[in-house]
Computed example of a mutant assay.
Amino acid sequence: MVNFNGQIVDDQELYLNSKNRGLLYGDALFETLRVVNGKVIFWEDHYLSLMSSMRILRMEIPMSFTMEFLEEQILMVLPTAVDTTSALIRITVYRNNGGSYEPESNEVSYIIDSDILANPYYILNEDSYEVELFKDYSLSKNMLSNLKTTNRILNVVGSVYAKENGYNNCLLLNESKSIVGALNGNFFLVKDKVIKTPPAEDGCIKGIVRKKILDILNKIDTYECQEISVSPFELQQADELFITNSVVGIQPITKYRKKTYENKVAKDILGKLNAAARFN
């Protein structure tokens, strides 16, 4: 099922048209989140992220777009299977039809759709997971790169490159040749007790799981956490590398070129992330 502006429609039904600005210009934003037992995980963070992004893109935020209203809209599209307790939700907000690069209006519409999740909480995938740098194109170091817009052609081309060359994922670079993130999430590097992740100023997505992990790390003394530029030359000296997003939580990287990695820190943090998700 799909929630299209408050109306439930079948996911096979045609409810968009050729004038859709998300289709024509990538003039749309999205948030991906989890619902477990009827509870939207990290909902306040996702909501504030969406509202902030809409303001940056000068979209008009409807008066009805309260946390309570959008949460109700999310719950309307939960899978109806009796044994389903968790779902993956995507909220897409796009500017309404009209205009070319200059829109006729800043008013918006929204789509909310769902998929069944096999596990209610994050599970560590310990299968082989190899990455490589994607160097064909780079991200810009500006605020637009921080947003989850539907204009993700670099990620699409990078994903095709990864598949063609037998990699599970690729790491993206910015114009200064620093690592920004992965094709589908944020990036963390562990060396001894220091954990690094690229700062927003380098062009990384402001992911919610990234934010929650930083919150967790800043409250404990086990590790030193740094939001700092990461050079590709640091990869082969690292103890661990991992990717984060709202779908998988934490995905350990097991191999980059001839270097292999452990996942002890990823396991430790994943337990704390699940605890935070349970009690948020």
Rank of each mutant, 00 (worst) to 15 (best):
D115V: 10
L154Q: 09
D268Q: 09
K264H: 13
E71Q: 11
I153L: 13
K196Q: 08
D27Y: 01
V265D: 05
Y101D: 12
V131K: 00
G99H: 04
Y122T: 11
G98I: 09
E102Y: 13
K272F: 05
E234Y: 06
T85M: 14
N20S: 10
Y137R: 13
L189Y: 01
T244P: 06
L75Y: 01
E164L: 12
L154I: 15
P232W: 00
D192T: 10
Y167H: 07
Y94N: 10
N142Q: 07
N186F: 02
A87N: 06
S49F: 05
E44C: 08
N3R: 06
I269S: 05
Y122R: 07
D83S: 15
N5H: 03
L172V: 10
D10M: 04
L48H: 15
I208D: 06
N146K: 04
F4P: 03
V40N: 04
I195S: 06
V108K: 00
P120V: 02
E107L: 15
N165D: 02
K177G: 06
F188W: 05
M76R: 13
I243H: 00
A277I: 09
L78T: 09
D113P: 08
V180Y: 00
V93I: 15
E262N: 14
K259E: 03
Y122Q: 03
E104T: 15
I61M: 05
D215F: 03
E201I: 14
L241F: 06
Y122K: 05
N168R: 05
L57Q: 07
I111R: 00
N125F: 01
L70F: 08
S86V: 11
N186C: 11
L29F: 01
R257Y: 07
Q7P: 04
C204S: 08
